[in-house]
Design a protein around this nucleic acid. Structure first.
Length: 588
DNA sequence: AAACACGGCGCG
DNA sequence: AAAGCGCGCCGTGTTT
């Protein structure tokens, strides 16, 4: 194994695509016994020192150095991105270690994987250096504004804490059979770095129009609200709304909030009140909420995009307890759709996303991956067989649930029954009881119970999946994904084991697929630009559309090749030439 | 002023 | 006994 060298950068801010730069770094090459040195280097003036530090930086990241260290980082994507920017070249090929990934792999339920927290929790490492330095995180020039006598001990602390973490986790990787999982996450660092660098594009002019439009609409709705409620109530405050609607105006409480059990003012409750009372105040409130939020979203895209409309989101591979990725600045995982669900005032936010000039975006989507994974996890021969034979599990289930009502239905009626049946399948998979099924599939409760029992007789293992996993969680505290990754489940939520496993397995599929596809494209301009849980966007040059099908066949093959999963995976492709909202199905 | 909890809402 | 879950972001309201 290579010698380890811990490496940590200091920067003027968090966003390399938004002008921030590294100006210092620290290293630590101590061995587990503590022999070795921690060093602090600065690239800012005085000149002589900067030259020496630059030479050291070049040496660390040289490809010709006699001794190639494996560089150990905590949140490696950040340090690599900043360092690549400083050096003006890709650093692919260097062996790296990622202690944040290790922290997540070994303790997925921690509230945070920040270095100072881990240092304190695991080693009792003193946090006295942190607060004085952290004060400068949000200052104009970031840590560059931090006095050297404050920053230096902080740099030392960070390098040493990372170093301690690495030596703490290192022996456990192979011991606990997690080498493949860890290597996959290490590889994903480079994949994600490249995806973030490519970025996605928004139409800035359209963002501006939309922001203005929804600002006006929100103002109009506020006027309507005021003519009813007067000026005393802020419709953005659930608490004030609650007082107004249920105390002052005396509307019936239709739903309680989850934690505090207060009368809810969410869309579902307001929708129910519209049905019951037909009072205009509820539409006004729903409009204010939807439209003011929409205005913020579009303004946010303007804030984070460059002059060409390019957005470089932050993609976090270790944020979610289930091993899923998350996305921020902006969150591109929750961009609202125009249609789908029963939303009274939908916002077509997807219309502002477009391909980069000269490119199209292919959007590759696993079809029904959640149901397939549940089938796999359950080990239920009947369900698995349906998928293996290319059948429609939700239609089979709907037949069991509804009998002739489903068999004789056609067109839209059949589709709506199948959709409800599908909800029933998920509800059962995630542990919904027999008395819950009727409500989910829209039949009387006692008929629902009978339907549940018929389903259970046909698919016993599938029906018992959640119970088995909850038991497993209560006994050992974790579930294990199809890739052998253990995921701890909160002790008071053992029933969520099925969820952790299915999300974690789906995440494992997509992360591995991304790595393969990244290997295929490298750092070229064409390639992945966005992962969204069960979907991948690929930016592809318009001039090479003739070659697209070949590329897509290669990529799809990489996405579905998972012998760990006992049911086949399928991928659907859409092509986006104008905006996300009007992406069209694409035959491969 | 900053940190935290919560409600609410968008997506998968 | 009962329960889908996971995120990020925004605003409000409370606490420090």
């Amino acid at each position: 194994m290579k010698t380890l060298l811990t490496y940590d950068t200091e920067t003027t801010g968090l966003y390399r695509h938004d002008g921030d730069e590294m100006f210092a770094f620290s290293t630590c090459n101590k061995n587990p016994d503590g022999y070795g040195t921690t060093a602090v280097h600065r690239l800012d003036p005085p000149k002589a020192r900067a030259r020496a530090s630059q030479a050291r930086l070049d040496a660390i990241w040289s490809d010709t150095g006699k001794r190639r260290y494996a560089k150990v980082m905590h949140n490696a994507r950040f340090d690599l991105g900043m360092t690549e920017k400083r050096l003006g070249r890709s650093l692919r090929g260097h062996e790296i270690h990622e202690t944040m990934a290790l922290s997540h792999i070994f303790q997925n339920l921690l509230p945070t994987h920040k270095l100072e927290y881990l240092g304190w929790e695991l080693f009792g490492y003193d946090r006295k250096f942190d607060a004085p330095a952290h004060k400068y995180l949000n200052s104009e020039r970031g840590m560059l504004d931090c006095p050297e006598e404050v920053l230096t001990p902080y740099q030392v602390a960070d390098a040493e804490r990372t170093h301690l973490l690495m030596h703490f986790f290192l022996p456990r990787i192979a011991q606990e059979g997690l080498q493949e999982v860890y290597d996959m996450e290490r590889r994903l660092v480079w994949t994600t770095l490249t995806i973030e660098d490519r970025g996605v594009v928004v139409n800035r002019a359209r963002c501006r129009e939309m922001a203005e439009h929804y600002m006006k609409e929100a103002d109009l709705a506020r006027e309507r609200f005021r003519t009813i409620a007067g000026y005393g109530v802020n419709p953005g405050s659930a608490k004030q709304l609650q007082y107004l609607l249920f105390k002052k105006m005396g509307f019936p409480v239709v739903k309680l909030t989850k934690k505090a059990k207060q009368p809810s003012t969410d869309a579902e409750a307001l929708e129910a009140l519209i049905q019951q009372t037909n009072h205009p105040i509820f539409a006004a409130i729903l409009q204010i909420k939807a439209y003011s939020k929409a205005a913020d979203v579009f303004a946010g895209y303007l804030d984070v995009s460059d002059d060409d409309g390019v957005i470089h989101p932050s993609i976090h591979p270790y944020a979610a307890k289930t091993g899923r990725e998350s996305c921020s600045r902006p969150n591109l995982h929750n961009v609202s759709k125009e249609t789908t669900r029963n939303v009274r005032y939908p916002v077509p936010a997807r219309r502002v996303f477009k391909p980069k000039p000269g490119f199209v975006n292919f959007m590759l989507d696993y079809s029904g991956i959640e149901a397939r994974i549940l089938a796999h996890m359950s080990g239920d021969e009947g369900v698995i067989k349906i998928f293996q034979e290319g059948g429609d599990f939700h239609a089979v289930a709907s037949e069991i649930f509804y009998g002739d009502m489903f068999r004789n239905a056609t067109g839209a009626a059949r589709k709506s029954l199948r959709d409800a049946g599908k909800n029933g399948d998920f509800r059962i998979g995630y542990g919904g009881g027999e008395d819950k099924l009727g409500g989910t599939i829209g039949i009387e409760q006692s008929l629902g119970v009978a339907a549940y029992r018929r389903f259970k007789a046909r698919f016993p293992k599938y029906t018992n999946l959640n119970k088995r996993q909850a038991k497993e969680v209560r006994e050992c505290g974790f579930v294990t994904t199809a890739f052998g990754r253990p995921l701890c489940v909160p002790a008071d939520k053992a029933f969520a084991g099925t969820n952790y496993d299915s999300q974690g397995t789906a995440a494992g599929i997509l992360k591995r697929a991304q790595n393969r596809i990244d290997e295929y494209f490298g750092t070229s301009e064409e390639g992945m630009v966005l992962p969204i849980h069960d979907e991948l966007w690929i930016q592809w040059p318009r001039k090479r559309l003739r070659e697209a099908k070949g590329m897509l066949r290669d990529v799809i093959a990489m996405m579905v090749d998972f012998p760990q999963i006992s049911v086949p995976l399928e991928v659907e492709v859409k092509i986006c030439t104008s905006d996300w909202n009007s992406a069209k199905e694409y035959e491969v």
